[in-house]
Simulated scan of single mutants.
Amino acid sequence: MSVLSAKYMHDEAAAFEHVEAMIWGDEPICPHCGTVGNAGKLEGVRTKPSKKNPEGKERHGLWKCRECRKQFTVRKGTIFEESHIPLHLWLQAIHLMVSSKKGISSHQLHRVLGITYKSAWFLTHRIRECMRDGALAPMGGNGGAVEVDETFIGQNPDKPKKKGARGYAHKNAMLTLVDRDTKRAKSIVVDDIRKHTLVPILRENIAKEAVVYTDEAKQYGKLSDDFADHDFTTHSKGEYVKREKPQVHTNTVEGFYSIFKRGMKGVYQHCGKQHLHRYAAEFDFRYNNRIANGIDDSQRAGLVLESTYGRRLTYSDSSTVRA
Score class of each variant (00 low, 15 high):
Leu4Arg: 02
Ala14Val: 09
Ala15His: 03
His18Arg: 15
Glu20Trp: 12
Ile29Trp: 10
Cys33Trp: 06
Gly37Ala: 08
Lys41Cys: 02
Glu43Leu: 11
Arg46His: 15
Lys48Tyr: 08
Ser50Thr: 14
Pro54Arg: 12
Glu58Ile: 10
Glu67Lys: 14
Cys68Leu: 02
Lys70Asn: 13
Lys70Asp: 05
Gln71Thr: 08
Thr73Gly: 07
Glu81His: 12
His84Val: 10
Leu87Arg: 11
Leu89Glu: 15
Leu91Ser: 07
Ser99Thr: 03
Ser100Lys: 03
Leu109Arg: 00
Lys118Gly: 06
Leu123Ile: 05
Arg126Gly: 06
Glu129Gln: 15
Asp133Gln: 10
Gly134Tyr: 12
Gly134Asn: 12
Gly140Thr: 04
Gly143Gln: 12
Gly144Asn: 10
Glu147Lys: 11
Asp149Tyr: 12
Asp149Glu: 05
Glu150Lys: 06
Glu150Cys: 04
Thr151Ile: 03
Gly154Arg: 04
Pro157Arg: 08
Lys159Ala: 03
Gly167Trp: 05
His170Gly: 00
Asn172Ser: 14
Leu175Asp: 02
Leu177Lys: 14
Arg180Pro: 00
Lys186Glu: 03
Ser187Tyr: 05
Ser187Ile: 02
Ile193Trp: 07
Arg194Lys: 13
Leu198Asp: 11
Leu198Asn: 07
Ile201Cys: 00
Ile201Leu: 15
Glu204Ile: 02
Asn205Asp: 05
Ile206Cys: 01
Tyr213Glu: 00
Glu216Arg: 13
Gln219Tyr: 12
Gly221Gln: 14
Asp225Val: 09
Asp225Lys: 14
Phe227Asp: 03
His235Phe: 05
Tyr240Gln: 01
Arg243Met: 06
Glu244Pro: 01
Gln247Cys: 06
His249Arg: 11
Asn251Cys: 12
Tyr257Gln: 11
Phe260Cys: 07
Arg262His: 15
Lys265Pro: 04
Gln269Lys: 14
Gly272Asn: 11
Gly272Gln: 15
Gln274Ala: 15
His275Arg: 14
His275Cys: 02
Arg278Trp: 13
Glu282Arg: 09
Phe283Ala: 01
Arg290Tyr: 04
Ala292Arg: 15
Ile295Pro: 00
Asp296Cys: 00
Arg300Asn: 01
Gly302Arg: 08
Leu303Ala: 00
Val304Gln: 12
Leu305Glu: 08
Leu305Tyr: 10
Thr308Ile: 15
Tyr309Asn: 03
Arg311His: 12
Ser316Phe: 05
Ala323Pro: 04
Ala323Leu: 09
Ala323Arg: 11
Ala323Tyr: 15
